[in-house]
Design a protein around this nucleic acid. Structure first.
Lengths: 210, 210
DNA sequence: TGTCATTTTAAACGCATGTTTAACTTTAGC
DNA sequence: GCTAAAGTTAAACATGCGTTTAAAATGACA
């Protein structure tokens, strides 16, 4: 395996676990068993390494997700919000194929993208992959046309917060849940519990201001 | 105003805006116009400063909130989830009285408590103010008795994530919303939009596993 | 007024971080 | 086999951080 890939793989696991700012280049290069300077030589900087890591996933996810959302919009005459959110599951789970073993860390990484690093990755994603958000808004609008654009704005951000927060703390929560309930839980299980929650939240009745 | 209070006030605003790890003691002491060493002299360490800051709010909020939740549980025979979440609003807004002007930064601080600093404040709050969570769980259970303890666990964490994330990015989102909709939004407005969302999320129908 | 505790101050300490340097090693092409 | 590019390495650099130190200033009180 070449140095670049070794770094990417080691960085992915460490970043997912401890966040971007919580992981040092020395930890990464030590786990990857390469020299410290290799990150700057191959990627230029830590920021560029993070971008490259996210790009590896987003370049696969983005077309998959847009296709999935478009399919669910075309097929259904009476589209429900649950169906919209369900459209995320399959594309997300196919990301696991990117890793030769185990499940991908993309969702945890996405979580840290929002909470770490003063949101520079938030900018990176929204400017480089705007199609994801656009299609999502369109699908939600089709499933719930009465929702005003202002309510749409807030509820989508609430939803993003819910998902992102759940994903960035997934490993800790799964540990607690398994101790408390003796029930095995994996990332897919969390996603499947998340869907009815956010679907109901986005689909809640709106109240008249007053 | 004495040095201790000057530090607390400056720290509160900076922490709320940029997070705990994102704010240095040098920024704080510079904004407070006190010497750098003053923080360690008066509080002992940065961690203790953060604790003191949260304590200033939690000592007021905790009894208020427990009272509010107990009141809403006693009065209502057919308690709804909306009512449970509504019970948070008044106690939270009374926190503004702690500041001589403007709205309190408590919710933003609470947001950062979860995302910053590898969750040491999460521990601090849950161990020092367990009554808040207990009463909350009891109220939700009364409003939605069919919810299994496992679903309760996940949905409460989703809810916490939603609220915390919304609050920690409130200032950024409010700016965007005001530009896009020309509508004035404040923290109370965000809370009032949040309530139907999380109430619907927690109250969503549960699906049988499979 | 003199004394002692409290507070403030400027400077330095120790440490960890991302990054850069310059020498060294490996690789590929002719 | 030589050469030039590509890659690797150990060391140092520059910066920012929380914290500590010891001297100076301030305050309270006899």
């Amino acid at each position: 395996m070449d140095t670049k890939t070794k770094i990417l793989n080691a960085a992915e696991n460490l970043f997912a676990d401890k966040g971007f700012t919580g992981t040092s280049l020395r930890e990464i290069t030590s786990a990857a068993e390469v020299n410290l300077a290799a990150v700057n030589y191959h990627f230029g900087s830590k920021k560029e390494l993070i971008k490259a890591l996210m790009k590896r996933y987003l370049d696969v996810l983005s077309p998959e997700l847009q296709g999935s959302l478009q399919r669910v919009m075309e097929d259904n005459e009476n589209l429900t919000l649950e169906q919209v959110f369900e459209a995320f599951v399959e594309p997300l789970l196919t990301l696991n194929q990117l890793k030769e073993q185990g499940t991908s860390n993309f969702l945890q990484l996405l979580g840290h993208s929002y909470t770490d690093s003063q949101g520079f990755l938030r900018w990176f994603i929204t400017t480089n992959y705007p199609g994801i958000i656009d299609n999502f808004v369109m699908a939600v609008h089709k499933a719930y046309p009465e929702l005003s654009s202002q309510d749409m704005f807030w509820r989508l951000h609430f939803t993003m917060g819910t998902a992102v927060f759940a994903m960035s703390s997934t490993s800790a929560l799964i540990d607690i849940a398994q101790n408390d309930f003796n029930a095995e839980v994996d990332i897919e299980g969390v996603i499947r519990r998340l869907i009815p929650y956010v679907a109901a939240g986005v689909g809640a009745n709106t109240v008249v201001a007053g």
